[in-house]
Write a protein that binds this DNA or RNA. Structure first.
Lengths: 158, 158
DNA sequence: ACTCTTCCTACCAACTAAGTAGGAATACTG
DNA sequence: CAGTATTCCTACTTAGTTGGTAGGAAGAGT
């Protein structure tokens, strides 16, 4: 599996939006107490993503119906659905297209012949295995699973 | 998962080599009755792979220890192990490096912080799921499974 | 010697990813 | 109604990778 920077950033941004709204982390970025809208600039800072690049990604996410946006002063982004109804797969597909590609084409139309005919089934099986993982993991899962790293670290950075 | 042309060609070439040695398909390419060595030129023709490109791939496969080669007239390639001891994963790793990459790096050293910390586990789970499929499928499996498609389809297209 | 084949290096064109820049639309504030 | 903050959108640049080609050198048999 190849996870591009774009996909990676998209996931991190979605998690940061979810945390800002649901009151999870409070990663100490800008300290904005606006309520539920997260600004692109603060997302970029919290997760170390180039701002201009992130804006294009947020646009894709909004077009895919995962984010709701609001312009003007006090604008920002929010999830369109609760964090436990958005899966990792949703985000990946929104910015990256198909989950599995063979020579640039979706797995099911690889077009093999002769002794290679069986390969299609392999790609389909791989595709299914990946989908099972990413479609059963929600943003909420990722936020609550708080692993070894206890997130808050209230001590200010350097 | 992203399967590059290189990986795809490698798999198809390996299957063609296995078929030539084991006497499986007989895809009607050149009709060489040499015995067990498959020539690059005939592999390229049988599976529609650019010859010069294929030669580089075969080289990688040989360096990875999956193929044995012989030069000169009556030269060619053969598997170093029986087809049921070579998995799809072996071939993929030989030409493509790591099976799962995040922003160009192997999955386990993604380096997340804050609310994104849980992502590492997702990539690891995906990696495991892919590995399970590709490491449990051997070349022999693919050759014997001969699916619904009975290859020749002698009727010419439009 | 001659021919056949693998081996190896260098090269090229096209595409994509990653990131930048600048401005237009929109919404709130005073 | 002016002003400002923010999203929105397009176009561009830069660098790396992928897919593919060319041309020979090294080795093996006849």
């Amino acid at each position: 599996m190849f996870v591009s920077a774009r996909s990676d950033y998209a996931l991190r941004a979605m998690l940061a939006v979810a945390a800002a709204a649901g009151g999870g982390g409070g990663d100490g970025g800008g300290g904005d107490r606006v309520g539920e809208l997260a600004k692109a600039a603060s997302l970029a800072e919290v997760q170390d993503i180039p701002l201009s690049f992130l804006q294009g990604i947020l646009l894709d996410l909004r077009r895919a119906g995962l984010l709701h946006s609001h312009r003007g002063a006090d604008g920002g982004y929010a999830l369109t659905r609760p964090a436990d109804e958005i899966t990792v797969g949703d985000v990946l597909r929104a910015v990256g297209g198909s989950l599995t590609t063979v020579r640039g084409l979706p797995a099911e139309r690889a077009g093999y012949h002769g002794v290679a005919a069986g390969l299609t089934d392999v790609w389909l099986a791989v595709h299914g295995a990946i989908a099972t993982v990413v479609d059963s993991t929600t943003l909420a899962d990722l936020l609550t699973h708080a692993p070894a790293n206890p997130t808050p670290t209230p001590t200010p950075p350097a």
